[in-house]
Structures are given as structure tokens and as C-alpha cells.
Design a protein around this nucleic acid. Structure first.
Lengths: 161, 161
DNA sequence: CCGAGTTACTTTCATAATGCAAGTGACTCG
DNA sequence: CGAGTCACTTGCATTATGAAAGTAACTCGG
């Protein structure tokens, strides 16, 4: 087994990366959000080799983020559309987008997020749903209801993220 | 050049993945947030091979997310600490964490985020800094100030993310 | 009916990334 | 003096990535 799998790790970050952590996967999802659905659309938009695209689309379908759907019978042609699980991945893209614009756009921002009604730029911030307050330094990682004894002990000592 | 580089793409998501998109990188960052700084701490926590760890730490330092710091003279020993740029990556980890817990914890959540003062669980949501409203369906991706003509044309047709 | 075009791939093969195992070097401590 | 700690490096096998070319099932224009 080459490339250590992360899906047996208890950490949800690790498990997520196990599904979308391969090269190209997240960019394919981005393009799916952009509205692309066809094989050749992804191929052209990304400049990805077709064999790589085949592998990634297959993996993303198996992970349940995309669905392969027949859109024409003869010849059989499929399109790839986001599932609910896939659509729920957008918050990750927003935060990746924001970080990239803050730190990797020395020549200025080439692409920005805007509000579809007002047209004003959007600056994504993560808050707690309950309190509405921005998450800050010192957010704790703690054992959850399904934690093993080992994990519980690991997180007895306060751990932040 | 094997593995297509993403850093010349205008999309900030692509550029971000160019820096942190390799296997292990984001888990190393996670552990850095957990407070780990030493080589052997990362090695044990992750179960990563030492040569891989060396490569990733080097890449993360070169990308400016970690800083290699001498903490003892003889023998020379270094620790790896997050830079401001690295610390700013936390929102991505929070959203990855939340997605993983929602979709990849069928046996229940093993690890959760909590408020350090109240101890209550935290549910990360992305909002717009200006309006405070949660980002929803239909957030637009538009050409920014530094966009080329080509890009500007690409995003004339409304594109959501 | 023939050839060009479209769409969605597969196959083959080179090269680079990942990872296991073992070794190294500079110390400290008993 | 030998064991232990810490932070790696080296050598080598295996797998992932990617470029190039080929395939298959159609449609459409002349």
C-alpha cells in the first residue's frame, strides 16, 4: 500500500483529506461548483490529462461527492454533478479561496467573491453558528461522544486548533 | 516536471493547493496548531516516515507557513513553528473539520470543537465579514482588480461557487 | 456513403512522489 | 563506556502522476 491512507484516523480533517486530498480533486470540485458537468469541460478548463481526470472523477463519485448521470442514451454519455455531500464542501473552498487571496496574490487579486444581488465583494469569515462570534485563537479540540478511551486521554490535556 | 504545478493559475484556490496540497502537509499543519513543534513529535503523532516528514517540513518552511528555529546550540536542534501566514490557515482546518464530522463520522463524532471558556461545542459557519450573513448558494466569482482581459471575459458570464 | 467532428474515454509508458528500512552524527546521562 | 535521545539521511521498492496516442460510438454535411 503506497501512500498512507488517512481514513482510519479518528480526526475528521484526516478523513476528509483521504477523500479529496489527491492532486486535482479539489480543483475538479471547484469547477463543478462553477457549473461544469462534462468530461471535456473539465479537461479543457483544468488542462488535466484525460486519464487523470477519469481516475479523479471515479474517486470523487465513489466518495459520494459527485454523481455520474446518464444524459443521453446513444451513444451513452454521462455528466458529473455534485451531490448534496459535494455541495456541502463549499465552505472549504471559500476559506481556501480567501487564504490564497490574502497570501498568494502579490500582484493583486485576480478573482474575488461577490454578493450576487449587491455585487459587493465578500470576505469569508468563520463564526460559531450558535453565538455568531468569529472563531478565534484557542478553539479547543476535545473528545466527542464516539471517542475511544485512548482518544479521550489524548485530549484531556487542552489542545487548540 | 511531474505533477502539474498550480501556482501559475490565477485562481487562489489552485495557488493555495500548490503549497499545501501534497499528502501529509495539512495534517502537519493541524499538528502544528495542536502545539507540536519538534521533528519526533510530528513523527510519532502522524506515523509518518522521517524522510517524508523532512520533505514536507522543508516545503512548508519554503512556502512560509512554518519557520525553522534553532532552540538549542549543541547539538544544533531545530523546532518548527507556525508563522503568521501559517496561523492564518486555521479557517481552512475548521471547515475541513466540520465537513468531515458531518459526512465521515458514521459511528458518531470522535473529536469536536469546543469553546475554551464555556466548553460548549462549536459549529463553524462561514459568513461575510461585512454583513455577517452566512454565505449561501449563488456566491459569485468575479474578476478582481488584477485580472487579465482573458480572465475578465471568462467571468463575464456569471459563475457561482 | 464517406470522411470529418464530437464526446468520452483507455492504453502504454516514462518519470516523479511516496514510503519502508536501515544507518548516521552529535550530543547527554548514568 | 555503553545506552539513549534527537533529528535527520540514504538506498531502494512501489505507486501515482502525466504525456501521447489510440479507441469507440455515434452525428452531420456533402
Amino acid at each position: 500500500m503506497q501512500r498512507t491512507p488517512f481514513d482510519q484516523m479518528p480526526c475528521p480533517v484526516a478523513r476528509t483529506l483521504d477523500r479529496v486530498g489527491e492532486w486535482w480533486s479539489i480543483l475538479i470540485l471547484r469547477d463543478a461548483f462553477y457549473g461544469l458537468t462534462r468530461f471535456d469541460q473539465f479537461e479543457q478548463s483544468l488542462g488535466i490529462a484525460p486519464n487523470m481526470l477519469t481516475r479523479r472523477l471515479k474517486a470523487l463519485c465513489e466518495a459520494g461527492l459527485l454523481e455520474r448521470r446518464l444524459y443521453q442514451e446513444r451513444p451513452p454519455r454521462h455528466e458529473y454533478v455534485l451531490t448534496a455531500k459535494g455541495r456541502d464542501f463549499r465552505p472549504v473552498l471559500w476559506t481556501l479561496f480567501a487564504w490564497g487571496n490574502r497570501h498568494l496574490a502579490p500582484e493583486g487579486e485576480s478573482v474575488i467573491l461577490t454578493d450576487p444581488t449587491t455585487g459587493l465583494p465578500i470576505d469569508p469569515v468563520v463564526v460559531d453558528r450558535r453565538t455568531g462570534r468569529p472563531l478565534e485563537d484557542g478553539i479547543r479540540v476535545a473528545a466527542g461522544p464516539a471517542a475511544s478511551e485512548r482518544l479521550r486521554r489524548r485530549f484531556e490535556r487542552p489542545t487548540t486548533i
